[in-house]
Amino acid sequence: MSGRGSVVGVVRRFWSARESGIVVALVLLVLVTTVDSPNFLSPQSVRDLLLGAAILVVLAVGQTVVVISRNIDLSVGSVLGLVAFATGKLLSSAPATPTAVAVLLGVGLGAVCGVVNGVLVAAARVPALVITLGTLYAFRGVDHSWARGEQINASDMPRSFLGLGTWTVLGVPVLAIIALTVVLAVGFYLRNYRSGRELYAIGSEPAAARLSGIPVGRRVFTSFVVCGASAGLAGVLYAARFGTVDATAGTGIELQVVAAAVVGGVAIFGGSGSAYGAALGALLLTTIGSSLAVLRINPFWQQAVVGGLILAAIGLDRLLAVRAANRLRGRSSHDA
């Protein structure tokens, strides 16, 4: 890691990485917005951006783990809602609960939901899209029938817990630090551990994975538990950040989560993509929301822009893949 050569290498790797495309888009977006409205980059504003993205980032990273292995988890919004309500309920009825315990319980409940998905997908060998579409309805129904229209307000929860959503360390929101930790941990795991790489292998070619002796069922099961746990964590963070929780929290967020992952370069049919990309995708989507609000663009355009972005992202991935294939083809014919 010393000398000019490695610097050049790092730069080159940056340019060839899929993530760099999103970074460029993000930078451009922030530049344009800042030119129009200079205090878009004020400390408070940046803090807000990070805060706003944190929950989506956690969800998108969890989703990445599942999507990489050629599955999908559509139930994350419902899990988030369920855990957010459960956390609120716990803290309003037992305000003395330490924040750490509340977080752990929330993550645990999310993981339990993940276990349900994982068992159905891995053991019953049923397509994840169908199962998680089913649990999307089912978890939300459980949430509703538990809440029965009850709303938990900020005043019902202890300040120490709500602080999780507002405190900053050296000016950086705690929420963003938690999200970043999750990104780094999952990203590091996926890149550097055998079981992480096996998820890519499963997503890339499931039949080959089975022949290679990879415990496919167990890995897929684990990926759903991880995704559920991250949705659980997101639920706890949601409760802390917004302070107001009812049974509808997180409704419809699953599409944003999938969109963030796809925009971040996670292939919808598995095998490639990274947690970092997904996190950047989530950050980009959130920033677009904030930018449009700041630029005072007709808010009706936002959804259309997000849709266009998804199409652009997958189109770009395709283009890059075709280019790379052409390059390889050229090279191998020279070697022959």
Partner: peptide, 21 residues
């Protein structure tokens, strides 16, 4: 007039946007 869609997250963002612009 900003629209928060009766959604916490969106309302947050829109409030930020208003104060920014």
């Amino acid at each position: 007039v900003a629209y928060g869609n009766d959604d916490d997250q969106k309302s947050f963002q829109e409030t930020q946007g208003l104060l920014r612009s």
